[in-house]
Write a protein that binds this DNA or RNA. Sequence first.
DNA 1: GCGACAG
DNA 2: ATCTTGTCGC
Length: 241
Amino acid sequence: MSEPNPYPAVPFGDWDGSPAAARAMQQTLASQVRLQDDFPPLRLIAGVDVGFEEGGSITRAAAVLLDADTLELVGSSLARIPTNMPYIPGLLSFRELPAVLQALAELPAVPDLIFSDGHGIAHPRRLGIAAHLGVVTGLPTIGVAKKLLTGEHDELDLMRGAQVELRDKKTGEMIGYVLRSKDKVRPLIISPGNRVSIATAPELVKRYLTRYRLPEPTRLADRLASRREEKAAARRMAGNA
DNA sequence: GCGACAG
DNA sequence: ATCTTGTCGC
């Protein structure tokens, strides 16, 4: 029995490669984002993140699949493809999504929810990488970013669990939450990508937090994508040699 | 024109 | 993101 493949080969149809065309495409895709809670009882959740090799010429995406109740690692995958464009603030998904989709397609099952590194709708045109990923796959997604891209918010308490609203600086519309995931650490910026409401997004992130700053799906994907242990091991070898 | 700017 | 050692604080 095979599951339908929700992962398109290319997350942007015919794109001429220009930043202007990418921004126009974001406007269209953003209108397809659904911000109502519409996800099944969570059984399998995924985390995705991207890293680079060879000075940036190779894009490396990691995807991890976890049991939503026990957080046990059910599967993981790595995809390495040539990097096709430089990093441009606001156009991150056009650079990283191809590799992310390939990594997701290699997981043993389709997740009920995906935690993505980067923003969801907390983006200038409301289409951060998590929202873009959600629209092209049709799956529920949440963006977990380590830094602010756009929007403004009040100060928030230093204790774990503290959170404040993130709103568009110009229109005042809600676009996410700023959440302190651990005592006295830089807060995370949480915004829905697709099929999750703004209010539910931080609740789901909190559900999967353990002792670290990042929720477990994101933390594990981050480790794989950035080659945490490989680098640490290589470094110690050089030092002890 | 100036400042900001996910990964 | 990535390059990189030791160091300050909980």
